[in-house]
């Protein structure tokens, strides 16, 4: 049995060994917020956080991350209360078709948790693995920049 800790919950799973983390999240745990658009680590839609770092779940073996803290998009909001990043993406019009958004938010969270006041270049650099075909980059970057400042203000926001 493999124990995966996802969004602060423990899951005991009977894994065979070949499963990617992405498959486990979507097909075994029903957490379909994490997407995939390429299956070859190019698009970033499968981005999740492991121990606070942005990683690609499509090239992560589920068995390799047993016992580590995995956070997906479903783990951000607290009940009805949206995470500042989620709120900022709505407030600054960063949402279009939405397929890239979970990956973008998770990549941004990893950045802002360590550095809530990044420069535009630093945001660009941290999000360079995330594609948005709708081309919403200007508003996405703005939302992240604003969210960081909000997160710094609300210092009590749990990481």
């Amino acid at each position: 049995m493999t124990t995966l800790i996802v969004n602060n919950r423990k899951y005991e799973l009977n894994l065979k060994g070949h499963e990617t983390l992405l498959e486990v999240l979507r097909d075994h745990l029903g957490l379909t917020g994490t997407k995939t658009a390429c299956e070859e680590s190019e698009c970033g839609t499968c981005t999740v956080n492991i121990n606070g770092k942005a990683v690609l779940s499509c090239v992560t073996f589920a068995c390799a991350v047993e016992g580590e803290e995995i956070t997906t998009i479903e783990g951000l909001a607290q009940g009805d209360l949206l995470h500042p990043l989620q709120q900022a993406f709505i407030d600054y019009g960063a949402v279009q078709c939405g397929f890239c958004i979970p990956g973008m938010i998770m990549a941004a969270k990893a950045l802002l948790d360590k550095n809530p006041e990044p420069t535009r270049e630093e945001i660009d650099y941290a999000l360079d693995g995330n594609l948005c075909r709708c081309g919403g980059y200007p508003k996405i970057l703005e939302a992240i920049w604003q969210a960081g400042r909000e997160m710094k203000k609300e210092r009590s926001w749990p990481q």
Partner: peptide
């Protein structure tokens, strides 16, 4: 510039695509 009517579902990963 009112907020997107479907925004909340998307940012929480709840919105279902045919993919899901």
């Amino acid at each position: 510039s009112v907020p997107r009517i479907d925004g909340k579902g998307i940012v929480t990963g709840q919105t279902k695509y045919a993919f899901d």
